[in-house]
Amino acid sequence: MTDTDPLVLSPTVGRRWLAQEIRRLREAAGLKQADVARRLRCNPTKITHLESMRTPVNGPDLEVMLPFLGVPAERIDWYLKVCDLSREKGWWDGDRSIPSWFSLYVGLEAGASEIHCWDAGYVTGLFQTTAYATAMLADDDAAGIRLRRQEALRRDDPVRVHAILDEAVLHRRIGDARLMREQLDHLGTLAAMPNITIQVMSFSAADHRGHLGSFRWLGFPQEGDPGAVYLENQLGGWFLEKPEELAVFGADFADLGARALAPEDSAALIARRAEEVR
């Protein structure tokens, strides 16, 4: 992140960036967490929590840490501004209808600059119509949250989404025929947007790793940020951020994209499927 970069598109992304930046600065200075803890007069566990986002960074701690980590005096106010923005509340923070484990994902998604997703079961949440989301979730609050997340697609600097859907998603009936046609037509509309790419993995495609499960890779606007992969199951969600983990999913997504139908052929298949639904 530089002075000319956008500061934060969501407070959650700001908190994540500050945690990463503290670790980066500490390692660049050749310091251990215990060294920073002595400067702050705290337990080293606190530094571990700051660098892992378990504890949000506050301004007073930053004012002590940054000079110790080698940040020039004229740069400190900028970091403090990022800190202030990161401590604001997003619409998802404190919403009791959003599980705590999912609130982190919603906050990161809201500030992502790009999302690559593979969906083997259902239409990706950012692409769902109101009726589809309500029928699938059977919960008006959960459906409303899912729809509010879609604001990221239409903001002034919209998130870029590259979604690959298994063809089974187009055939799996959610609700009645009218609902499904509406959803498929909506996919066609989205596919025409400049910030959205949709591909379909046809039934004829074989020997790919998509059977291992759906996943999302989120990229962020901050320079040098490698992004994060999000996975979810019945017990909750978790993030992968190690370089070797990101490399596996990056390679898998590239392979899925190479095997899936081209965007224009995918749009044609979606349109044909919409006409077939009865």
Results as ranks from 00 to 15, higher is better:
residue 1 M to G: 12
residue 5 D to A: 15
residue 5 D to T: 15
residue 5 D to C: 10
residue 6 P to L: 13
residue 8 V to N: 03
residue 9 L to Y: 15
residue 12 T to Q: 15
residue 14 G to A: 01
residue 14 G to T: 09
residue 15 R to N: 03
residue 17 W to I: 08
residue 17 W to K: 07
residue 21 E to P: 02
residue 25 L to Y: 00
residue 27 E to K: 13
residue 28 A to F: 00
residue 28 A to K: 00
residue 32 K to M: 02
residue 34 A to I: 11
residue 35 D to M: 02
residue 35 D to T: 03
residue 37 A to I: 03
residue 41 R to F: 08
residue 42 C to G: 06
residue 42 C to Y: 12
residue 43 N to R: 14
residue 44 P to F: 02
residue 46 K to Y: 12
residue 46 K to L: 15
residue 48 T to V: 10
residue 48 T to F: 06
residue 50 L to V: 09
residue 52 S to W: 01
residue 52 S to G: 03
residue 53 M to F: 06
residue 56 P to D: 01
residue 61 D to T: 07
residue 68 F to Q: 09
residue 71 V to W: 00
residue 72 P to Y: 01
residue 72 P to R: 04
residue 72 P to A: 10
residue 73 A to E: 15
residue 75 R to H: 14
residue 77 D to W: 02
residue 78 W to V: 05
residue 81 K to V: 12
residue 86 S to E: 08
residue 87 R to D: 00
residue 91 W to K: 06
residue 93 D to P: 00
residue 95 D to A: 14
residue 96 R to C: 01
residue 96 R to L: 15
residue 98 I to E: 03
residue 101 W to R: 04
residue 102 F to R: 01
residue 104 L to C: 00
residue 104 L to D: 09
residue 105 Y to W: 06
residue 110 A to R: 05
residue 111 G to D: 04
residue 111 G to Q: 04
residue 112 A to D: 11
residue 114 E to H: 10
residue 115 I to E: 14
residue 120 A to K: 14
residue 120 A to F: 14
residue 121 G to C: 03
residue 127 F to Q: 06
residue 128 Q to G: 07
residue 132 Y to D: 10
residue 135 A to C: 04
residue 143 A to S: 09
residue 144 G to T: 08
residue 145 I to E: 03
residue 146 R to A: 05
residue 154 R to S: 14
residue 155 R to Y: 12
residue 157 D to Q: 13
residue 158 P to K: 05
residue 161 V to P: 00
residue 165 L to E: 01
residue 167 E to A: 14
residue 175 G to Q: 07
residue 176 D to E: 09
residue 176 D to T: 01
residue 177 A to D: 13
residue 180 M to H: 06
residue 186 H to N: 15
residue 187 L to A: 05
residue 188 G to Y: 13
residue 191 A to L: 06
residue 192 A to F: 02
residue 193 M to F: 07
residue 194 P to N: 05
residue 198 I to K: 01
residue 198 I to Q: 04
residue 205 A to R: 03
residue 205 A to W: 02
residue 206 A to L: 15
residue 208 H to N: 12
residue 210 G to I: 15
residue 218 L to S: 02
residue 218 L to Y: 07
residue 220 F to H: 04
residue 224 G to R: 08
residue 224 G to L: 03
residue 226 P to H: 08
residue 227 G to Q: 06
residue 227 G to C: 12
residue 227 G to T: 07
residue 227 G to W: 13
residue 231 L to H: 07
residue 236 G to V: 04
residue 238 W to T: 10
residue 242 K to N: 10
residue 243 P to D: 15
residue 243 P to I: 14
residue 244 E to L: 12
residue 246 L to C: 12
residue 247 A to Y: 04
residue 248 V to A: 04
residue 250 G to R: 11
residue 250 G to P: 02
residue 255 D to R: 14
residue 258 A to D: 13
residue 258 A to L: 12
residue 259 R to T: 08
residue 261 L to T: 08
residue 262 A to H: 09
residue 268 A to Q: 12
residue 269 L to G: 13
residue 269 L to T: 10
residue 270 I to D: 12
residue 274 A to Y: 06
residue 275 E to K: 14
residue 277 V to D: 08
